[in-house]
Amino acid sequence: MKNMQSNETLALEVRDLKKYFPIKKGVTQHTVGHVRAVDGVSFSIPHGKTFGLVGESGCGKTTIGRTILRLIDPTEGSAIIDGVDVFKLKKKQLRKIRPKFQMIFQDPFSSLDPRMSVGAIIGEAVREHNIVPRSEHNAYILKVMKQCGLRSFQVDRYPHEFSGGQRQRICIARALALNPQLIIADEPVSALDVSIQAQVINLMKDLQEELGISYLFISHDLSVVEYISDYVGVMYLGSLVEMGSKKALFKEPLHPYTRALLSAVPVPNPEVKMNRIILEGDVPSPANPPSGCKFHTRCRQCMEVCKNFEPKENWVSEDHYVKCHLYDANIAETADAALDTKSE
């Protein structure tokens, strides 16, 4: 990860993505400030792998997904899919390459048009992009449906006749029908029941093994992310604070926020009394983020230097970095410098 693989092996490469939403006020709608929803995020996903993006609500993880899809226009940065920077494409070119990256939404109820049959929902974009010849269209739809665990007679049913889990299968089928190389899944299971969650996650894993799709899996549920991901990035207030391979990150979480997040997950075992790190307070507003390390207002190990200097990526191993002054080898110098400038 550190020495990035060559472009051919990457399904997606995001570099320094920024998305600021303007805050407008008054009759003239002039901009008075910006909400820094995503503030300089870089990561990459190799082919056939899953990158899990975790964080609490409002940390900007959903914005990242939507920006990569160009459902929202980015402020800065680049997202490279197949050697093409998606952010630089014109509308027409963009439409042509859209089948390569698809999305699964959180709410299985509002993400399907209630007035279209399942066949039409899945087939709409297939027809638009001529994925298969017209004569094979119906057979192709049925094939995709079968792949996703739907039955052929359901093709003319309407979304309201399905339960949440099946609707999510339809969403997956809709994305899958375009032969994408990347699927951005935004909280795909958080609206589902536990036993149904497992079905959908397993389906996604099976499809990955079968077809070699890459996932950008956005979720607040750490255990699900741990299960499905190969690489994990932890977000806080618009920035990645820690990123690494799943093994490294879950075995040895470094950032105080990651640790708090992990310890907050309830474990279904009454005998395990966890030494819980309970974070005080709420996430600060992204319109007015704290100076220095954005987490310092809630951090237990906050140092003087954290309040003034934004930490850099500290690579602790080949595939694991953390943005925290605690792991900064030159911390003493930085801190001294900070104090010096202050006392002067």
Binding site: P99, F105, S110, S111, D113, M116, E128, R174
Partner: peptide
């Protein structure tokens, strides 16, 4: 604001089709 409109956008559906197939029927 419905997610299926965004899904249509993400699927690269033409603007006219979005209006004809999604907006008008709804």
């Amino acid at each position: 604001e419905m997610e299926y409109m965004q899904a249509a956008e993400a699927g690269g559906i033409r603007g006219s089709r979005k209006i004809m197939r999604h907006l008008i029927p709804n």
